Computed example of a mutant assay.
Amino acid sequence: MSFPHLPSWLLLPLMTVLGFAGGALWALGPALMRAARLVNETISTLLLNYVAPLIVSYFIFGPWRSAESGAYPQSPAFVAAARLPSFAGTRIHPGFLFGLLCLAIYGVAMIRTRWGLEMRAIGGNAEASLRLGIPVSRTVIVAMMLAGGMAGVAGMAEVSAIQGRLVASLSPGYGFIGFLVAWLAGGDAIGIVVMAFLFAVVSSVGDILQITQGTPYAVINLLMALVLFIVLGRRNPTGGAR
């Protein structure tokens, strides 16, 4: 069901809500496993980053495949009402502003609210937070579902504004890069902006080197993997995030 006859003022909010719901439900599994202390959320979410594209590929290669896609399977193009506009002919779209708004809300919430204080306490020492009466499991589940929902909205914006249809190469490692950005920033809102810009530069340089010098993009992946190991070792030398 694609709702081709809905106006944009109704279709785009509907896509946003569905994107948030899909991302939140996808994050619910790792959140429940983390709350039950079965699987570390770092491991489960990183591994699921490889599962989600395969599910999308199933639909692109199967029931949602466009008859005009040829050798490169993809879904039919979205109707005009389902496309987010861009600014001045660039690739910048309202999804970028939405991300900045969410980051601002996050920064204020973490510093100025009781919920943010509880989140920082849990990040520092979950066991001590539990003994102080903080609902650790509930807080972790809500936080992870909110984060998953925001990621779902980001994916919706990417598809709607940039791709205009579902494609197999929708996410070339965005989840992995997002993880590195969050860890290197240490949860600081300004740090997230700085680290995101840094990794955007690294990723862009990798594309340029691949085109002009024939350098395998795997070199950039190795660099990011090395950064991951350094970050994990620095954050928690005893093994894993709590």
Rank of each mutant, 00 (worst) to 15 (best):
D188Q: 11
A80Y: 01
L46W: 12
F78G: 10
I55A: 11
M110R: 15
M15C: 14
P85C: 12
G89C: 06
L11C: 03
F179L: 15
R138M: 13
L18H: 11
Y106L: 10
L18F: 11
P172E: 07
I208N: 04
F229C: 01
G70E: 06
M156W: 13
I230E: 08
Q210Y: 10
L47S: 13
L132W: 03
F20V: 02
L6P: 03
I105A: 09
L32F: 03
A71E: 12
Q163G: 10
G175K: 00
F78Q: 14
G95H: 03
A185V: 13
S203E: 06
S129D: 03
A109Q: 00
I43R: 13
F176Y: 07
L28E: 02
S57K: 02
G191M: 04
L198D: 03
V136K: 02
G124P: 04
I122E: 13
S66E: 01
V194M: 01
D207K: 05
A24H: 06
M156K: 03
L84F: 12
L32H: 07
R37E: 10
I55P: 05
A154K: 00
G173Q: 02
M195A: 13
L209G: 12
S203Q: 14
F229V: 14
A161F: 06
R114V: 01
G124W: 09
R83S: 04
L130V: 12
G173F: 07
L14C: 14
A196N: 05
A71K: 08
R131G: 11
G89F: 04
I208F: 15
G70D: 12
G19A: 11
T90N: 06
A71L: 06
F87W: 12
D188H: 07
W183A: 14
V202C: 07
Y106G: 13
A168T: 04
M15Y: 00
T90G: 01
I111E: 15
A109Y: 07
F96D: 09
A128W: 08
L97M: 12
I134F: 08
G99C: 09
R242P: 04
G70L: 01
W115D: 01
A147I: 04
G95M: 03
M145W: 03
A104V: 10
G95N: 04
S44A: 08
T16P: 10
S160V: 07
V108W: 10
P94L: 08
